[in-house]
Write a protein that binds this DNA or RNA. Structure first.
Ligand SMILES: NC(=O)c1ccc[n+]([C@@H]2O[C@H](COP(=O)([O-])OP(=O)(O)OC[C@H]3O[C@@H](n4cnc5c(N)ncnc54)[C@H](O)[C@@H]3O)[C@@H](O)[C@H]2O)c1
Ligand SMILES: NC(=O)c1ccc[n+]([C@@H]2O[C@H](COP(=O)([O-])OP(=O)(O)OC[C@H]3O[C@@H](n4cnc5c(N)ncnc54)[C@H](O)[C@@H]3O)[C@@H](O)[C@H]2O)c1
Lengths: 217, 217
DNA sequence: GATAACTTGTGAAGAAATTCACAAGTTCAT
DNA sequence: ATGAACTTGTGAATTTCTTCACAAGTTATC
């Protein structure tokens, strides 16, 4: 088993999605603690905040190294730096939004993303009426420009906020343009090569989950 | 082990969240097949669509009964009816939106939810400048009215689209008003009684998941 | 009605994720 | 220095989830 060294984060086995989500949560809590001037934190306190257990917190972190001090806990500053490193948040990611409708516009105007290192560099739409208008300082570009633009700007992540019927063809174009990650808001299961990372935000599915919980609760 | 009867869906053990999400997916596919006039479908075809396996599909369904015909597969119409019953989608759910900002407004104007039986009956905001304006035919109401309104209208689900700092106090009010399910868009981990069903849509977390995938891919 | 080709439903096996439990290390007070 | 009070990191145990594999049932064809 490889040991952690300060210069890199070794990943010795596939990390579960649920683990990554929790790391993301922990980071948010740590930032909160940092803001409040708290210097160290125990796995127990971190767990209480996230609705999990201290063992889970320690196990999650143990995949990447050992960042704590026995008897004391974790340095808030150090652990959040580690998590940012693990999650790949030390760099800035270039994000484009495709579909300047209601959701796409709301996302483009939301500054919470760039605060976390996800910079929205362009907004695209297929509707000639929308192209040329501005959303939060970004001029909406025609989708036909995407392939060319991507060659120059090499965006990292495409956010899909187009109607479900258009989602697949847009995804195909995104993949063809060399973009390797997609955040999909359309209620359509995308078929993409497995080298492409896809996350879906499906609000109808969340509501149905609540419906199930209310019905069988 | 209890057996399935046509009048009710017996749940003999706790159903995993992941199972419910997949049921929701299957239902979407079935509706698609139904629209295209396909009468029967095999677990294999359903699985291919959802990126899972036929055994997984059959196991998911087996928690609730046996809905298929050996050698033939599932009746698309019957299985979607069953899934709607299981998910509690035979009735209409009353939904309120709290926070008429960018996201809240986009959600209020989105008709995809009511098409799936989630009827948005009211929008609330704390900002006096927003109160009284209309979003998609709904007049924005002052949040101070919520408790009273809820006594009459008994909404089922509250969608939280308020800033993170306000999320907890709004959630407390929602719970106090007798609403038993929350869909939270604010990047804040809500603390609520365990009788309350909560789902969170955390887009920053999804982006960080993509960042992780791109970094450690 | 016999055979071939399917497909379901489900125990059992296997894999994965979570929780337990404790040795080992740290801090603090006296 | 010593003891008490903490807390981490991690194998092992446990629980949960997924996949396997096959008996049993259905349909179609000849
Ligand atoms: N608005 C919501 O609250 C909400 C909620 C859940 C899911 N969604 C989903 O998000 C997606 C967008 O929803 P919306 O409400 O913003 O819709 P919308 O109609 O307001 O916006 C869609 C935009 O996409 C553009 N578009 C259409 N085809 C395109 C194409 N081929 N290439 C590029 N752009 C194209 C349209 O011109 C339009 O500007 C839909 O799939 C919807 O189901 C929206
Ligand atoms: N806009 C996005 O794309 C986006 C993306 C991810 C997450 N979010 C989250 O969604 C939430 C809303 O974001 P937004 O962009 O719509 O913000 P916004 O500022 O546009 O809207 C927030 C609304 O909430 C109202 N509000 C504030 N305090 C309130 C209270 N105590 N009770 C009732 N209403 C109150 C405000 O008056 C405003 O109308 C935030 O938590 C944000 O982090 C938004």
């Amino acid at each position: 088993m490889k040991k952690f060294t300060s210069s890199s984060i070794p990943i010795v086995k596939r990390i579960a999605d649920s683990t990554v989500r929790r790391l993301s949560l922990y980071l948010r809590f740590l930032e909160d603690f940092e803001k409040r001037g708290i210097a160290t934190i125990s796995s127990d306190e971190l767990a209480a905040r996230g609705g999990t257990t201290s063992a889970q917190v320690r196990k999650d972190l143990s995949f990447f190294g050992s960042f704590g001090k026995r008897g004391l806990g974790y340095s808030v500053a150090e652990l959040s730096a580690r998590l940012r490193q693990i999650l790949g948040l030390e760099r800035e990611w270039q994000v484009i939004i495709i579909g300047a409708g209601k959701i796409g516009a709301a996302l483009a105007q939301y500054h919470g993303f760039s605060q976390r290192g996800f910079r929205i560099i362009a907004v695209y739409d297929a509707d000639p009426d929308k192209v040329g208008r501005a959303v939060d300082g970004l001029v909406i570009r025609p989708l036909t420009d995407l392939a060319d633009d991507a060659k120059r700007q090499a965006p990292d992540i495409a956010v899909l906020a187009v109607p479900a019927v258009a989602a697949q063809e847009v995804a195909d174009l995104v993949v063809k343009s060399g973009i390797r990650a997609i955040l999909n808001f359309a209620p359509h299961q995308l078929q993409v090569p497995e080298t492409i990372a896809v996350k879906a935000v499906n609000m109808a599915m969340e509501l149905e989950g609540l419906s199930f919980a209310l019905t069988n609760g």
